[in-house]
Design a protein around this nucleic acid. Structure first.
Lengths: 227, 227
DNA sequence: CAAGTATTCAAGTATTCGCTTAAATAGTGT
DNA sequence: ACACTATTTAAGCGAATACTTGAATACTTG
């Protein structure tokens, strides 16, 4: 191969990889990936969740689809998007973890907004699995019902955090409650632990959320609903 | 936390993660990461290798440094850059592997430029380690000497591909030679295998290069030179 | 087939990015 | 302290990006 060809090859191949980087270069698109890591979702739904216009979200989804990070399928009148591949989640988690590890700004934001985060120690995935196996921990999924339906920790029960206060009767007293949600930057589990503790429960949050659990190959269940 | 605060928190935190995505959104910067995955290098050196102006490379390095993907240190008159963290390599490999797996364009480029790639089957890292242990494979590092010095597969010997033809005498006949280079998109090992085979050796390339080997936790050596 | 609706596309604008050239820095080594 | 040199920064320009608005598609479902 001539020198010139070699240069062109490198330029072209790194440009291709850079397409994926470009897809990851917008906060909005990363938020979409983070949401899709919970499971399949429709466009309008994503638009509402991210407080963006539908057209804008649609365009971002096209960009993600162009580089095969997401796929879509039609479901009645809706188009549902999902992550294209297990490795997409892997890539997003790798990026996120690196950011958490090395960007001081992220730590600062967590300190500022999630100020009670330090107080609530968390339990790891491995430890939770051990407890499920031996100790019979009560696992509480506090995400919205659709996300629970799309996939959840095996054996978890679903009480969305918005309904937790009124459904406290369903939560067994005297056992340790482990609450989890979308991931480390989601506040649902924090809120749930707060509510439970104030009501006299022993509650703790899972370190990470459903995507992290799934990524570690831990047991997962899905509602038998035909999706 | 109020709804409005929650939204601001999400916007800000995803914007932070997007900074890393932005850093990965240029082919030139990815090439720099790929080069730095081989070991520490100076600015002018990187500029020559990528056929870019020094000023441009310097600016790209600043961008990578702003998000803590690379670090630098002074060494005499030169400033040497390196990957900031093992996880940076992890992130880059995750991105690269996803691209290789899902972007048809990348496969097409490999077919076009590296047309003999299919013919040369490759040996995996695990298999190579097994052979080193039991079979006594000859491992040949065909990268430039500085990269070899910065780190190489334990037990490998260095013959840069540019010198291979004139230094064939140093290569033992009758044993299988495993050549490796920078990684799957580097042609050095392909060229080396070609040269060796035409000279009557049994030669095969390693699947992946030094960074992949290192990432898998396989044994690595470094020249004792004070860097 | 017709009406309805979720989604996508197109055009427009303000902002950001990438590379160039030229000048400024900062640190070394004598 | 001086001269030297590798590197960084600044300014400038053309290309690309992000979001908006409004119109077009494409599918479903009655």
């Amino acid at each position: 191969m001539r020198h010139e060809d070699k240069r062109r090859f490198k330029d072209e191949i790194f440009a291709q990889f850079a397409r994926i980087g470009k897809a990851l270069s917008s906060g909005c698109r990363l938020e979409l990936l983070d949401l899709l890591a919970q499971g399949e979702r429709g466009v309008e739904d994503l638009a509402i969740e991210t407080t963006q216009s539908v057209a804008n979200i649609s365009q971002h989804l096209q960009i993600l689809r162009q580089v095969q990070l997401v796929e879509s399928r039609r479901d009645g009148n809706y188009i549902r998007y999902r992550l294209a591949d297990r490795n997409v989640l892997h890539l997003w988690l790798a990026l996120r973890d690196l950011g958490q590890e090395r960007l001081a700004e992220i730590d600062r934001l967590v300190q500022t907004y999630l100020n009670d985060r330090n107080a609530l120690e968390a339990i790891t995935c491995t430890e939770l699995r051990r407890r499920i196996k031996y100790g019979g921990a009560v696992v509480l999924d506090v995400r919205p019902p659709l996300e629970f339906a799309a996939g959840h920790i095996a054996g978890a029960r679903s009480i969305p955090v918005a309904e937790l206060r009124t459904r406290l009767g369903e939560v067994p007293k005297r056992r340790v409650i482990v609450a989890y949600c979308r991931g480390p930057y989601c506040v649902f589990a924090d809120q749930a632990v707060g509510i439970l503790r104030r009501a006299g429960y022993k509650a703790i949050r899972l370190d990470g959320g459903f995507p992290e659990w799934q990524m570690k190959g831990m047991p997962v269940e899905r509602n038998a609903v035909e999706m």
